[in-house]
Design a protein around this nucleic acid. Sequence first.
DNA 1: ACTCTGACTGAACATTCGTTCATTTTATTC
DNA 2: GAATAAAATGAACGAATGTTCAGTCAGAGT
Lengths: 220, 220
Amino acid sequence: MGQMRDIKMQEKRQKLLECALTLFSEKGYINTPVREIIDMSGYGTGTFYKYFNNKEDILKILLEDLFEQIVDSVNDYFAHESDLYKRFVETKRVIIEVYARNEKLSDIYSRVAGMNDNIDQCLKDFDDKFLDFTSKNIEYGIKNGSFRTLPILPIAHATLAIIKYAVYKWVVAKEISKEEMVDLVISFMQCLSIGLVKKKLLENNLLLEQYGEAFIEERS
Amino acid sequence: MGQMRDIKMQEKRQKLLECALTLFSEKGYINTPVREIIDMSGYGTGTFYKYFNNKEDILKILLEDLFEQIVDSVNDYFAHESDLYKRFVETKRVIIEVYARNEKLSDIYSRVAGMNDNIDQCLKDFDDKFLDFTSKNIEYGIKNGSFRTLPILPIAHATLAIIKYAVYKWVVAKEISKEEMVDLVISFMQCLSIGLVKKKLLENNLLLEQYGEAFIEERS
DNA sequence: ACTCTGACTGAACATTCGTTCATTTTATTC
DNA sequence: GAATAAAATGAACGAATGTTCAGTCAGAGT
């Protein structure tokens, strides 16, 4: 039934994706000629255009792979953690760790914003998914009485902002290490939670561990 | 003494810069051929290369103009405001309003990250200036006893992150209006200040005005 | 009025790029 | 093992791009 053929075709598609991933992350999407992807793969020019409609297509597929990984990871995490405060902070750890595991994809992700309308739409769709998801969780926390009544959208936006920024500083600017990237996001979330989460729920805040009793005393 | 000539030359340089500004912001730097800038200006090809070394050169000059405006505005603001809390929040309003006044420049700024090493360095230099400046002010506030002892760098990074993000959402994604962009940054700074600024200094926090007494009661 | 510096011009250059398609090769089926 | 359908090939195409440079021209100095 042509199984062998199908497998080899999948392998070729995968190989092309990997070559594009490597080259895009090394030189940037715009500075990578399709020809180089093709040469690196070892296949012919036509083969590339058999598996992908055009250059932009392969970029989109790579980005969507990253987004899918993030969505899957978050869903996994939510399946076995229901504590609201932990979710508020740790969900972002889960997300940032997906970026950390995918250095090349993260590099591409950080460098394609504003490339063209098509790619921007792709990025925006994911942003919207993130904002919607984060907002709903904060809203639930407020209704639940765990969170203070603060403006939701700015917090959701700020969370997305710090994630994007941290990834950029890690993978493009190379100013911080992978661990510092995770720390930056987490410690920011903890800062945010000081204002958001009601005091009684803050006992297990790691910031309190770090900065000790003086902090609690000052607050009350 | 060739004054007339000098003036006309400056005018030509300026015209070319304006054309580049418009086209870069409309179609993106990478999608704007030098020829189009030249055609729009009405001058000859060689004239462009008389005033600018190459295409990247004109982009860099535009970016540096934006950065200079920001630095100048902040210096002006600092000259007549010495209150630490006000500075902490309002400095960012001053900055974001420079972006708001320069829509085209902001568009370019938001879309060139990761273009190439040269441009990245240019962006990084400004980031570093911002981080250094913001850190020093928080540090001063802590030493002064106005701010709590929180980790400085993550706060500085987060501030930069929200500014970049807000500009992007305004001018590239077009998800928020100019006013919403300013609000996003300011309300974020106020959220941050809840955790950072000691309570007695928080009386004039606008968030308190918005969310009223209940908020203060919950805190204490 | 004449000279001459240097600003200005734009056709031409030398690449480079994304994509196509006529042809060849390969795997599968009968 | 021949027929067939689909995959693979890569030379060639056409359009674009950043930049150059030999020649032109305007205006400042004398």
